[in-house]
Design a protein around this nucleic acid. Structure first.
Lengths: 197, 197
DNA sequence: CCCCGATGTATCGGGGCGATACATCGCACG
DNA sequence: CGTGCGATGTATCGCCCCGATACATCGGGG
């Protein structure tokens, strides 16, 4: 999950950890909150051990302030195997749980995903949210009198959010089916379906 | 967090693990998805070690099917110290992160929380969601042209959800301030501000 | 009669998180 | 001019939670 996101970002350009975290936070910010260093660095270590990325002791750019001592910045770079791995993860759907942040991560890289996979992931997500929605409806209709007002309100709010997300997914799915893959308002700078290398 | 929720449920009545999980799933279902047994049982173990709850080898009720062998159901029960602990947790606000499920848990037990604490927690939550909302607005306004269409759409959807939650919280806060603590539509069976024992 | 789904208890490995520590850099304010 | 603070930057530790899995019992329907 984090592995997928990191590979995706490093696929675009090499980076050091701090920058990586910032990009992760904004890119995945919609479904996840902040990525902790306690997750980031161990994951980088794992990726490195698996051979998906390599570590380079930061080559100072033209404007680099001279880093006299050890512990300078470390730049991570994706390998060919890492790119393969990323392509593999691109078409694999996340697990079947509702609050899985994996959906948000996948969505964030939809520009690099082929349309069939996009559709599959969107529909999978819709199914899970619908299931959750039904569960909440059951609670609200069948057990309403056994719950206090605050719990009910919480349930109502959750149900509302589910319904809204289902509608959002419906729109995305319809849009996806009707040919034109990208979105409504703004132009993209990453043309889809163009795996480089 | 789980600790808090378990104490809250056992405060209402003793239960065994399976039932506990079901109740947790519906009660906290709005902000969290499902509680795993891999969390539940270790937490029960911890609570037991701390002395907040006790374990009773399931006394068979009148209709109990005779459980001949070992491994029958285990009923957990809150202790006096556990009730103290719960009262202590009731008035403590969760951590300062956005996607902290602690808010949902606290909210689920608002019927047992005094109004001042309710207000404090609601306002704390509002502040955090507002911060997140501002962050997303910045991304959308400042870095819009540097992101692909899907990432933008994800951001838009997240921003929308934040705005909606802020509005929801505003309503709850206003309602809370204007005297009448419970909610709008349905009657409650747990009168607030009545700590038993 | 037999199997299946619900009930029920429990463990294990893996991975994410908050807290924390530490070092450097640029700059604003006194 | 210097100093101290906030941003940049790397890294670890312990805690907790999750998904997968195993196992046992029970009621009922084919």
């Amino acid at each position: 999950m984090l592995e997928f996101a990191i590979l995706g970002l490093l696929h675009e350009s090499p980076m050091h950890g701090y920058e990586l975290r910032k990009q992760l936070t904004t890119k995945l910010g919609a479904f996840r909150a902040a990525i902790s260093y306690g997750s980031l660095y161990p994951t980088l270590r794992r990726l490195q051990a698996a051979g998906w990325i390599t570590e380079e002791s930061g080559a100072p750019a033209a404007d680099a302030p001279l880093l006299t001592n050890r512990r300078s910045r470390v730049v991570y770079k994706i390998t060919a195997e890492g790119k393969e791995r990323f392509q593999e993860l691109l078409s694999s759907a996340g697990p079947e749980t509702f609050d899985d942040p994996g959906f948000g991560v996948h969505f964030a890289f939809f520009a690099r995903t082929d349309q069939a996979t996009r559709l599959r992931i969107l529909e999978g997500r819709r199914r899970r949210v619908e299931e959750r929605r039904e569960g909440m409806r059951d609670v609200l209709s069948r057990a309403a009198e056994r719950l206090d007002a605050y719990t009910l309100e919480l349930q109502r709010h959750g149900l509302d959010a589910c319904e809204r997300e289902v509608r959002w997914l419906e729109e995305l799915i319809a849009h996806e089916r009707s040919g034109r893959p990208p979105e409504v308002t703004t132009p993209s700078n990453l043309p889809p379906d163009q795996p480089e290398q």
